[in-house]
Design a protein around this nucleic acid. Structure first.
Length: 158
DNA sequence: GCCAACGTTGGC
DNA sequence: GCCAACGTTGGC
């Protein structure tokens, strides 16, 4: 099983929205590096939901990958801001996965909190100027952030 | 294929 | 609201 972090602006889509819908297609990713990570995700992988552009930015909860990568339908919808006229239906350029909520963190884990964890010093998230919206998380990063959020791995299987 | 201009992300 | 970082676009 692998671990990931997905960014979202909570004004657009946040943890309460995920809980409300139950299953969410993680669409609209239009960056090749992020897309390639999406394509590596497998059902059962765990993802942090990171709220960006909030004060402070933070991890809100843990999600599970419910469906591996499949074509992002918005790339073919002309009225969508995510429409990509260069993408061919027989060879879709952009992918999405489905995610479901697992558990909300007991305490928010802020970006500053993460920077205080030695396991996170190598993460793209804590580096200046980082814009990657989908990124891998190591087992140590996952475990330490979960602990900072007041949970441990047993809370994810209960 | 280079690189300047431009647009976007996202912390501050 | 500012601006650093950085990916993308398009002229050449």
């Amino acid at each position: 099983m692998a671990f990931w972090l997905l960014k979202s602006e909570p004004d657009v889509f946040g943890w309460p929205d995920l809980v409300a819908v139950g299953t969410e297609p993680w669409n609209g990713i239009r960056n090749y590096q992020a897309r390639n990570f999406l394509r590596q995700m497998q059902p059962g992988d765990l993802c942090f939901l990171y709220h960006s552009t909030t004060q402070p930015p933070h991890i809100a909860g843990v999600m599970r990958v419910a469906r591996a990568a499949y074509p992002d339908d918005l790339q073919f919808e002309k009225d969508s801001p995510y429409f990509d006229p260069k993408s061919q239906p027989d060879n879709p350029r952009w992918s999405m996965v489905d995610v479901q909520p697992v558990v909300e963190l007991r305490q928010l884990v802020t970006l500053d909190d993460l920077r205080s964890l030695s396991a996170w010093v190598e993460s793209p998230l804590t580096r200046r100027g980082n814009r990657l919206s989908v990124m891998p998380v190591t087992a140590a990063e996952f475990r330490t952030a979960l602990k900072a959020g007041g949970l441990d791995m047993d809370d994810l299987t209960a």
